[in-house]
Structure formats: C-alpha cells, structure tokens
Amino acid sequence: MIDVKNLEKNFGGANVLDGITTTIEKGEKVVVIGPSGSGKSTFLRCLNRLEEATGGEIWFEGANICDPKCDIDRLRQKMGMVFQQFNLFPHLTVRQNITLAPVKLGLMDAAQANQKAEELLARIGLSEKADTYPSRLSGGQQQRIAIVRALAMNPDVMLFDEPTSALDPEMVGEVLELMKQLASEGMTMVVVTHEMGFAKEVATRVVFIDGGKIVEENDPQTFFSHPENPRLQDFLSKVL
C-alpha cells in the first residue's frame, strides 16, 4: 500500500532521515518508536508530504508522493492524519470540523456529510457535543474528534503522530481504545508513539528508528522479548 524507497530528509546539513526503505501492506498496523530526534515523526510527516523529502520515493496508490507533479491533495484525501496537538479548527463547531473537508472537496453533499458526522460522533459517544466548539472539550475528546474527522474522509490509511503525547494521563486510555477499535476493523495504520503497551497489543509490526535509519523491525512479540540491536536494547531498558 505504501512503498518507501531510500527516503532521505536533510535539514540544513543534518540527515534527519538517512535512507529509509520499508513497505506497509494493506491492513498492517505499523508502530514506529525511537528516541526523540530520531526522525520518526519526520518519517511519518514525509508519508503525506507535510515534510518534503530530499531524496527517495514514496509510492502510494500508484503515485510517487515525492514527485512534485503528483496530485498530493487527492492522495492526502486517502491518508488520514492525527496530530499530537489535535489541531481541531477552533472557529468551527465539532460538526463543522468533521464535515468541512468532505463537503468542500465535493465528496459528499451537506446532508450526507452531516449524517456521516452524526454516525461518527455516536460511535465515540460524543453526539451531544456536535454543536459545541472544540475549546469546550477535554483533550481526550478533542483527539477522538480529530480521529473521526480524518475518518470522515474514508481514508485507506491512518497516520498517527504521537496522538497521546499531549494528553493528560487519564485521557490516554480513551484515545488508545478508539485506535484499537480502528485496528480491529482492519484499518491500515502507521503510529508514531511512546505507548509501548499499545505497540505490544495492537501492532502487527514494530519499527525502531534511530539516527534517521530503521535499526530494527519485527513482530511485537520478538521485538520486545528478543531485541537484537544494542541501541534498541538500551532504548527498551529505559522505556519499559
């Protein structure tokens, strides 16, 4: 589904991504972990070109995302993204947050989008919040709405950039629970996170990035119980 070939990203002389090659298959849940500054968020942001890669290729649904001539707006419609800081639109109600893109992009008419929004809100138990503004909601509620906002576009893959890192501890659970539901429904997911429990439970593959390279990747069982690379062993000994 996503084919990454020798991806490079250079920030003012420093190689943040130093040749990353991997393939994400349909239905996979890839959890990306690594120390801060390792390039894991940059990697994720390159996947939908919020960061411009300086080298390599990313193939998604028959197009190379790194090619300046590709229709990135159309490709992004199929790649949902969830941010650490939620990034709900504060001037719009919850309902408008969800319906804006599908309507403005002509994918649904207002009534369809509205129905979709209500279904999604009912699913996360926030139906009664449809007409409130994001600033009145808790972080956990905001992040769950950000997730369903992305889902309203019917994406083929969901990218999560440290979705629980900005949350108060008691709200982490509700967001992870929603992500687990998504995973069990077969959504293809790429998740950058520090939640090792989530990685163990949900991931089909865990990827360790350090120094802009994939140092080790494996199924979660092997990854956590038999890490081979000394840097990964060191990292896991600190976070587990």
């Binding site: 992004r76 993204m81 639109f89 804006l100 893109a101 950000a146 992305a150």
Partner: peptide
Amino acid sequence: EAGRSLGL
C-alpha cells in the same frame, strides 16, 4: 497542516 492533510 490539518487542513492540508484532509486534502484541502
């Protein structure tokens, strides 16, 4: 970024 990532 949120707007662009939705395909706008």
